[in-house]
Design a protein around this nucleic acid. Structure first.
Lengths: 107, 107
DNA sequence: TTAATAATTCGATAGTTGCCGAATTTTACA
DNA sequence: TGTAAAATTCGGCAACTATCGAATTATTAA
């Protein structure tokens, strides 16, 4: 069995990541992107259109824009503009790192 | 291989947990408790004295007290008073839940 | 019972955050 | 080129947060 040897955590960076996930609406946004990211990861449809998610949230466009920037800034998602639209996908590397923080030998 | 079927995330609750980890000093406090929790989990020494951690942080006692309450409130740690001292240990169940959010079939 | 140490509570304050509406920018297309 | 849709930027405000010092409470040990 693989021994659980953790890298030391960059506290400043980790706090920033958690802060990005600490707002309800922003977390919902992130989880939606995450869901789409995982739904069909073997195909090329791992990016999602923010416009579509926006309708499910109870906040306005300026706020969504701001939240997207926070998620991007924290490194949680990677965005790309597709014509008029903004698309986002999960930064899988970072998620793996996060997962490591909470992983444990205890089960 | 085990299929990765996730429970739906309670967004409100999860946001509260991430908020508790979003402050640098509070995160450091938490990680210290986590470290001690994992160092010797097969023995009975999985609780740590907050006083000892306090010295390594650059904030005063009132603030530490407040932070501990936030971590407890979020369910991340479980505290117990041992005489004059406050001890804390990790709520392993919750950590497991958190870990699940970030777990993935992608590797 | 008193002095000392740990922890908590309280009140205040500077700083941060989430949100909005209005204005602006970007892009597509009639 | 002009209009519409999507997104962003800006300015502002209410609410929240992190922190502190002072005062208080809890516990131990002299």
């Amino acid at each position: 069995m693989k021994k659980n040897v953790k890298k030391p955590v960059d506290v400043k960076r980790a706090a920033k990541i958690f802060k990005a996930l600490s707002n309800e609406n922003r977390l919902e946004l992130f989880l939606e992107i995450l869901k789409i990211n995982e739904t069909c990861f073997e195909t090329e449809c791992t990016e999602c259109f923010i416009t579509d998610i926006m309708d499910t949230l109870s906040i306005g466009a300026p706020t969504v824009s701001h939240h997207m920037k926070e998620l991007t800034n924290a490194g949680l998602v990677i965005t790309e503009r597709k014509g008029k639209f903004l698309t986002a996908k999960i930064n899988d590397e970072l998620i793996k790192e996060l997962s490591e923080i909470f992983s444990s030998d205890k089960n």
